[in-house]
Amino acid sequence: MNALEIDHLNKAYGSLRALTDLTFDVHAGEIFGFVGSNGAGKTTAMRIMLGVLAADSGQVRWKGSELDLEARRRVGYMPEERGLYPKMKVGEQLEFLAGLHGMSPTAAKGAVEHWTDRLGVGERRGDDVEKLSLGNQQRVQLAAALVHDPDVLVLDEPFSGLDPVAVDVMSGVLRERAQAGVPVIFSSHQLELVERLCDRVGIVRAGRMEALGSIDELRATDHPTWLLDVDAAPDAVMASLATLPGLTTTPVTEHPGQLHVVATTRDAEAPRAILRAALELGAVREFSPVRPSLADLFRGVVSAGEDPAVDPSASDAKEGAR
Protein backbone atom coordinates (compact mmCIF):
# COMPACT_ATOMS: atom_id res chain seq x y z
CA MET A 1 0.00 0.00 0.00
CA ASN A 2 1.45 3.39 -1.04
CA ALA A 3 0.71 5.05 2.28
CA LEU A 4 2.63 6.61 5.12
CA GLU A 5 1.54 4.65 8.19
CA ILE A 6 1.98 5.85 11.75
CA ASP A 7 1.35 2.82 13.93
CA HIS A 8 0.85 3.13 17.72
CA LEU A 9 3.62 5.66 18.38
CA ASN A 10 4.46 6.26 22.04
CA LYS A 11 6.90 8.83 23.37
CA ALA A 12 7.51 10.10 26.90
CA TYR A 13 9.91 12.63 28.41
CA GLY A 14 10.09 11.48 31.99
CA SER A 15 6.59 11.87 33.42
CA LEU A 16 5.35 13.83 30.37
CA ARG A 17 3.48 11.64 27.86
CA ALA A 18 4.09 13.34 24.50
CA LEU A 19 2.44 10.61 22.37
CA THR A 20 0.12 7.78 23.37
CA ASP A 21 -0.67 5.07 20.79
CA LEU A 22 -0.82 7.66 18.01
CA THR A 23 -2.11 5.89 14.90
CA PHE A 24 -3.15 7.16 11.47
CA ASP A 25 -2.11 6.93 7.82
CA VAL A 26 -1.72 9.27 4.87
CA HIS A 27 -2.61 7.80 1.48
CA ALA A 28 -0.84 8.39 -1.83
CA GLY A 29 -2.25 11.52 -3.47
CA GLU A 30 -3.87 12.72 -0.23
CA ILE A 31 -3.41 15.99 1.66
CA PHE A 32 -3.71 15.29 5.39
CA GLY A 33 -4.14 18.07 7.94
CA PHE A 34 -2.56 17.37 11.34
CA VAL A 35 -4.01 19.79 13.87
CA GLY A 36 -3.95 20.29 17.61
CA SER A 37 -3.16 22.82 20.31
CA ASN A 38 0.41 23.82 21.14
CA GLY A 39 1.91 20.95 23.11
CA ALA A 40 -0.45 18.35 21.62
CA GLY A 41 2.34 16.22 20.09
CA LYS A 42 2.34 17.20 16.41
CA THR A 43 5.99 18.20 16.09
CA THR A 44 7.13 15.22 18.16
CA ALA A 45 5.26 12.88 15.81
CA MET A 46 6.75 14.53 12.72
CA ARG A 47 10.26 14.35 14.14
CA ILE A 48 9.80 10.65 14.79
CA MET A 49 8.64 10.19 11.18
CA LEU A 50 11.91 11.74 10.02
CA GLY A 51 14.13 9.89 12.48
CA VAL A 52 15.10 13.08 14.30
CA LEU A 53 13.58 11.54 17.43
CA ALA A 54 13.19 7.87 18.35
CA ALA A 55 9.83 6.57 19.51
CA ASP A 56 9.65 4.59 22.74
CA SER A 57 7.49 2.13 20.81
CA GLY A 58 5.51 1.96 17.60
CA GLN A 59 6.53 2.16 13.96
CA VAL A 60 6.46 4.44 10.93
CA ARG A 61 6.05 2.64 7.60
CA TRP A 62 6.10 3.64 3.94
CA LYS A 63 4.70 1.22 1.35
CA GLY A 64 4.35 -1.39 4.08
CA SER A 65 8.00 -1.33 5.16
CA GLU A 66 9.59 0.48 8.09
CA LEU A 67 10.73 3.96 7.16
CA ASP A 68 14.48 3.44 7.46
CA LEU A 69 17.35 5.81 6.68
CA GLU A 70 17.34 5.03 2.96
CA ALA A 71 13.58 5.58 2.68
CA ARG A 72 13.85 8.87 4.59
CA ARG A 73 16.09 10.20 1.83
CA ARG A 74 12.91 10.19 -0.28
CA VAL A 75 10.96 12.33 2.21
CA GLY A 76 10.66 16.09 1.90
CA TYR A 77 10.64 17.66 5.37
CA MET A 78 9.93 21.24 6.35
CA PRO A 79 10.61 21.76 10.08
CA GLU A 80 8.79 24.36 12.13
CA GLU A 81 12.15 25.77 13.24
CA ARG A 82 13.49 26.76 9.84
CA GLY A 83 16.91 25.28 9.10
CA LEU A 84 18.38 27.48 6.36
CA TYR A 85 21.94 28.80 6.51
CA PRO A 86 21.44 32.59 6.75
CA LYS A 87 24.73 33.65 5.15
CA MET A 88 24.60 31.17 2.27
CA LYS A 89 23.12 32.11 -1.10
CA VAL A 90 19.71 30.68 -1.88
CA GLY A 91 20.69 28.81 -5.04
CA GLU A 92 23.94 27.43 -3.67
CA GLN A 93 22.20 26.25 -0.52
CA LEU A 94 19.41 24.45 -2.36
CA GLU A 95 21.88 22.79 -4.74
CA PHE A 96 23.91 21.65 -1.73
CA LEU A 97 20.81 20.17 -0.06
CA ALA A 98 19.80 18.44 -3.30
CA GLY A 99 23.26 16.90 -3.47
CA LEU A 100 22.82 15.49 0.02
CA HIS A 101 19.83 13.60 -1.36
CA GLY A 102 22.00 12.05 -4.07
CA MET A 103 21.23 14.36 -7.01
CA SER A 104 23.92 15.11 -9.58
CA PRO A 105 25.08 18.75 -9.86
CA THR A 106 23.29 19.15 -13.20
CA ALA A 107 20.03 17.66 -11.91
CA ALA A 108 20.27 19.69 -8.71
CA LYS A 109 20.75 22.95 -10.62
CA GLY A 110 17.74 22.24 -12.82
CA ALA A 111 15.55 21.34 -9.84
CA VAL A 112 16.59 24.48 -7.97
CA GLU A 113 15.73 26.67 -10.95
CA HIS A 114 12.36 24.96 -11.34
CA TRP A 115 11.26 25.20 -7.71
CA THR A 116 12.52 28.69 -7.00
CA ASP A 117 10.72 29.92 -10.13
CA ARG A 118 7.57 27.97 -9.22
CA LEU A 119 7.57 29.43 -5.70
CA GLY A 120 8.23 32.99 -6.83
CA VAL A 121 11.80 33.41 -5.57
CA GLY A 122 13.70 32.71 -8.78
CA GLU A 123 15.11 36.23 -8.85
CA ARG A 124 16.53 35.76 -5.36
CA ARG A 125 18.71 32.71 -6.07
CA GLY A 126 21.84 34.84 -5.84
CA ASP A 127 20.87 36.50 -2.53
CA ASP A 128 21.94 35.45 0.94
CA VAL A 129 19.04 33.90 2.84
CA GLU A 130 19.31 36.47 5.63
CA LYS A 131 18.52 39.24 3.12
CA LEU A 132 15.12 37.72 2.31
CA SER A 133 11.85 38.59 3.98
CA LEU A 134 10.46 35.97 6.33
CA GLY A 135 7.84 35.05 3.73
CA ASN A 136 10.46 34.48 1.05
CA GLN A 137 12.58 32.48 3.47
CA GLN A 138 9.51 30.33 3.97
CA ARG A 139 9.24 29.79 0.20
CA VAL A 140 12.91 28.81 0.04
CA GLN A 141 12.40 26.39 2.91
CA LEU A 142 9.59 24.71 0.97
CA ALA A 143 11.85 24.57 -2.09
CA ALA A 144 14.39 22.75 0.10
CA ALA A 145 11.73 20.15 0.93
CA LEU A 146 10.78 19.73 -2.74
CA VAL A 147 14.08 20.00 -4.58
CA HIS A 148 14.86 16.26 -4.58
CA ASP A 149 11.39 15.28 -5.89
CA PRO A 150 10.37 13.45 -2.69
CA ASP A 151 7.96 10.54 -2.51
CA VAL A 152 6.43 11.90 0.73
CA LEU A 153 6.01 15.45 2.08
CA VAL A 154 5.99 16.19 5.83
CA LEU A 155 5.54 19.89 6.57
CA ASP A 156 5.40 21.45 10.03
CA GLU A 157 3.50 24.79 9.99
CA PRO A 158 4.38 25.58 6.33
CA PHE A 159 1.91 28.49 6.13
CA SER A 160 3.08 30.30 9.25
CA GLY A 161 3.68 34.01 8.58
CA LEU A 162 2.75 33.92 4.89
CA ASP A 163 0.70 36.62 3.18
CA PRO A 164 -2.43 35.56 1.23
CA VAL A 165 -0.60 35.49 -2.13
CA ALA A 166 2.13 33.24 -0.74
CA VAL A 167 -0.52 31.00 0.87
CA ASP A 168 -2.17 30.59 -2.54
CA VAL A 169 1.17 29.72 -4.17
CA MET A 170 2.06 27.18 -1.52
CA SER A 171 -1.45 25.68 -1.55
CA GLY A 172 -1.22 25.24 -5.30
CA VAL A 173 2.12 23.47 -5.00
CA LEU A 174 0.79 21.06 -2.37
CA ARG A 175 -2.22 20.25 -4.55
CA GLU A 176 0.07 19.60 -7.52
CA ARG A 177 2.25 17.22 -5.51
CA ALA A 178 -0.80 15.36 -4.22
CA GLN A 179 -2.17 15.08 -7.76
CA ALA A 180 1.18 13.53 -8.72
CA GLY A 181 0.54 10.80 -6.13
CA VAL A 182 2.60 12.17 -3.24
CA PRO A 183 1.18 11.78 0.30
CA VAL A 184 1.25 15.23 1.92
CA ILE A 185 0.92 15.79 5.66
CA PHE A 186 1.12 19.23 7.21
CA SER A 187 0.35 20.80 10.55
CA SER A 188 -1.24 24.22 10.85
CA HIS A 189 -3.21 26.42 13.23
CA GLN A 190 -4.95 28.07 10.24
CA LEU A 191 -8.01 25.86 10.44
CA GLU A 192 -9.95 27.54 7.61
CA LEU A 193 -7.02 26.75 5.31
CA VAL A 194 -6.84 23.15 6.54
CA GLU A 195 -10.58 22.76 5.95
CA ARG A 196 -10.30 24.11 2.42
CA LEU A 197 -7.18 22.22 1.39
CA CYS A 198 -7.21 18.82 3.08
CA ASP A 199 -8.82 15.53 2.07
CA ARG A 200 -8.71 14.27 5.66
CA VAL A 201 -7.90 15.76 9.03
CA GLY A 202 -6.59 14.35 12.30
CA ILE A 203 -7.16 16.26 15.54
CA VAL A 204 -4.68 15.35 18.24
CA ARG A 205 -4.98 16.26 21.92
CA ALA A 206 -2.46 15.45 24.64
CA GLY A 207 -0.64 13.07 22.30
CA ARG A 208 -3.74 11.07 21.33
CA MET A 209 -5.64 11.05 18.06
CA GLU A 210 -9.09 12.20 19.14
CA ALA A 211 -10.82 12.68 15.76
CA LEU A 212 -9.90 11.44 12.30
CA GLY A 213 -11.63 11.59 8.93
CA SER A 214 -12.82 13.85 6.15
CA ILE A 215 -14.52 17.10 7.10
CA ASP A 216 -17.88 15.59 6.16
CA GLU A 217 -17.18 12.53 8.30
CA LEU A 218 -16.16 14.67 11.26
CA ARG A 219 -19.33 16.75 10.84
CA ALA A 220 -21.59 13.70 10.90
CA THR A 221 -24.04 13.78 13.81
CA ASP A 222 -27.12 12.00 15.07
CA HIS A 223 -28.66 15.40 15.77
CA PRO A 224 -28.63 17.45 12.55
CA THR A 225 -29.41 21.15 12.84
CA TRP A 226 -31.06 23.53 10.38
CA LEU A 227 -31.22 27.30 10.13
CA LEU A 228 -34.77 28.48 9.52
CA ASP A 229 -35.77 32.04 8.59
CA VAL A 230 -39.52 32.54 8.01
CA ASP A 231 -41.50 35.70 7.33
CA ALA A 232 -43.54 35.17 10.47
CA ALA A 233 -43.34 35.87 14.18
CA PRO A 234 -40.65 33.64 15.74
CA ASP A 235 -42.98 32.69 18.59
CA ALA A 236 -45.58 31.46 16.11
CA VAL A 237 -42.95 29.43 14.23
CA MET A 238 -41.65 27.89 17.45
CA ALA A 239 -45.19 27.02 18.56
CA SER A 240 -45.90 25.34 15.23
CA LEU A 241 -42.67 23.33 15.26
CA ALA A 242 -43.33 22.29 18.86
CA THR A 243 -46.16 20.10 17.55
CA LEU A 244 -43.64 18.06 15.52
CA PRO A 245 -41.99 15.17 17.40
CA GLY A 246 -38.24 14.91 17.85
CA LEU A 247 -37.34 18.58 17.38
CA THR A 248 -36.12 21.42 19.57
CA THR A 249 -36.13 25.04 18.39
CA THR A 250 -34.06 27.96 19.71
CA PRO A 251 -33.72 31.58 18.52
CA VAL A 252 -30.43 32.64 16.92
CA THR A 253 -29.25 35.37 19.28
CA GLU A 254 -27.09 37.24 16.81
CA HIS A 255 -29.77 37.20 14.08
CA PRO A 256 -33.24 38.06 15.47
CA GLY A 257 -36.01 36.27 13.62
CA GLN A 258 -33.87 33.27 12.67
CA LEU A 259 -34.19 29.92 14.43
CA HIS A 260 -32.04 26.85 14.91
CA VAL A 261 -34.00 23.61 14.66
CA VAL A 262 -32.27 20.54 16.10
CA ALA A 263 -33.42 16.97 15.50
CA THR A 264 -33.30 15.09 18.80
CA THR A 265 -33.93 11.80 17.00
CA ARG A 266 -32.69 10.58 13.63
CA ASP A 267 -35.61 11.05 11.21
CA ALA A 268 -35.09 11.32 7.46
CA GLU A 269 -38.48 13.03 7.11
CA ALA A 270 -37.67 15.81 9.59
CA PRO A 271 -36.49 18.40 6.99
CA ARG A 272 -39.67 18.00 4.93
CA ALA A 273 -41.88 18.27 8.02
CA ILE A 274 -40.08 21.43 9.16
CA LEU A 275 -40.36 23.05 5.76
CA ARG A 276 -44.06 22.20 5.37
CA ALA A 277 -44.86 23.66 8.79
CA ALA A 278 -42.86 26.81 8.06
CA LEU A 279 -44.49 27.40 4.66
CA GLU A 280 -47.92 27.37 6.27
CA LEU A 281 -46.88 30.40 8.33
CA GLY A 282 -45.19 32.58 5.70
CA ALA A 283 -42.50 32.87 3.05
CA VAL A 284 -39.36 30.90 3.89
CA ARG A 285 -36.36 33.15 3.37
CA GLU A 286 -33.83 30.50 4.29
CA PHE A 287 -33.80 26.84 5.26
CA SER A 288 -30.38 25.24 5.27
CA PRO A 289 -28.33 22.70 7.23
CA VAL A 290 -25.95 24.09 9.81
CA ARG A 291 -22.56 22.47 9.31
CA PRO A 292 -19.89 23.01 11.97
CA SER A 293 -16.58 24.41 10.73
CA LEU A 294 -13.30 22.67 11.45
CA ALA A 295 -12.70 25.37 14.07
CA ASP A 296 -15.98 24.35 15.79
CA LEU A 297 -14.99 20.68 15.64
CA PHE A 298 -11.53 21.51 16.97
CA ARG A 299 -12.94 23.47 19.90
CA GLY A 300 -15.26 20.57 20.69
CA VAL A 301 -12.38 18.09 20.80
CA VAL A 302 -10.10 20.34 22.83
CA SER A 303 -12.80 21.36 25.30
CA ALA A 304 -13.65 17.68 25.91
CA GLY A 305 -10.67 17.67 28.27
CA GLU A 306 -7.82 20.03 29.00
CA ASP A 307 -4.27 19.08 28.00
CA PRO A 308 -2.13 18.29 31.04
CA ALA A 309 -0.08 21.24 32.25
CA VAL A 310 3.28 21.46 30.52
CA ASP A 311 6.21 23.63 31.52
CA PRO A 312 6.96 25.47 28.22
CA SER A 313 10.65 25.69 28.95
CA ALA A 314 10.82 21.98 29.73
CA SER A 315 8.85 21.22 26.57
CA ASP A 316 11.26 23.23 24.43
CA ALA A 317 14.23 21.54 26.06
CA LYS A 318 12.71 18.17 25.26
CA GLU A 319 12.73 18.69 21.49
CA GLY A 320 9.44 20.61 21.40
CA ALA A 321 6.84 18.05 22.38
CA ARG A 322 4.00 19.50 20.36
Results as ranks from 00 to 15, higher is better:
residue 190 Q to R: 14
residue 161 G to D: 09
residue 215 I to R: 10
residue 216 D to Y: 11
residue 227 L to C: 09
residue 201 V to R: 01
residue 176 E to W: 08
residue 163 D to L: 01
residue 162 L to T: 05
residue 193 L to Y: 07
residue 215 I to V: 13
residue 223 H to Q: 15
residue 228 L to P: 00
residue 229 D to W: 06
residue 182 V to A: 08
residue 161 G to P: 01
residue 162 L to V: 07
residue 199 D to M: 04
residue 162 L to F: 03
residue 198 C to H: 03
residue 180 A to C: 09
residue 202 G to E: 08
residue 191 L to N: 10
residue 181 G to F: 02
residue 210 E to Q: 15
residue 196 R to M: 08
residue 233 A to W: 10
residue 172 G to Q: 07
residue 158 P to G: 12
residue 174 L to G: 02
residue 183 P to Q: 01
residue 236 A to T: 15
residue 175 R to A: 11
residue 193 L to I: 02
residue 189 H to W: 13
residue 227 L to W: 07
residue 236 A to N: 12
residue 211 A to N: 08
residue 228 L to H: 04
residue 188 S to V: 12
residue 184 V to L: 04
residue 223 H to K: 14
residue 166 A to N: 15
residue 222 D to Y: 07
residue 175 R to F: 05
residue 156 D to G: 04
residue 230 V to G: 03
residue 176 E to M: 09
residue 219 R to N: 12
residue 219 R to Y: 04
residue 234 P to Y: 08
residue 185 I to N: 12
residue 214 S to H: 09
residue 174 L to D: 02
residue 182 V to F: 07
residue 195 E to F: 04
residue 217 E to G: 07
residue 208 R to H: 11
residue 201 V to W: 00
residue 198 C to F: 06
residue 216 D to Q: 15
residue 171 S to R: 15
residue 160 S to F: 09
residue 211 A to C: 01
residue 207 G to R: 02
residue 174 L to M: 12
residue 187 S to P: 09
residue 180 A to D: 12
residue 166 A to C: 07
residue 173 V to P: 01
residue 171 S to T: 15
residue 159 F to P: 03
residue 191 L to Q: 05
residue 228 L to N: 01
residue 234 P to E: 00
residue 208 R to Y: 07
residue 194 V to T: 05
residue 166 A to K: 10
residue 207 G to Q: 04
residue 189 H to L: 13
residue 215 I to A: 11
residue 175 R to Q: 14
residue 154 V to F: 05
residue 165 V to D: 14
residue 238 M to W: 06
residue 219 R to L: 10
residue 154 V to G: 05
residue 227 L to S: 12
residue 182 V to H: 10
residue 189 H to R: 12
residue 181 G to M: 03
residue 192 E to N: 14
residue 195 E to L: 09
residue 187 S to Y: 04
residue 214 S to G: 06
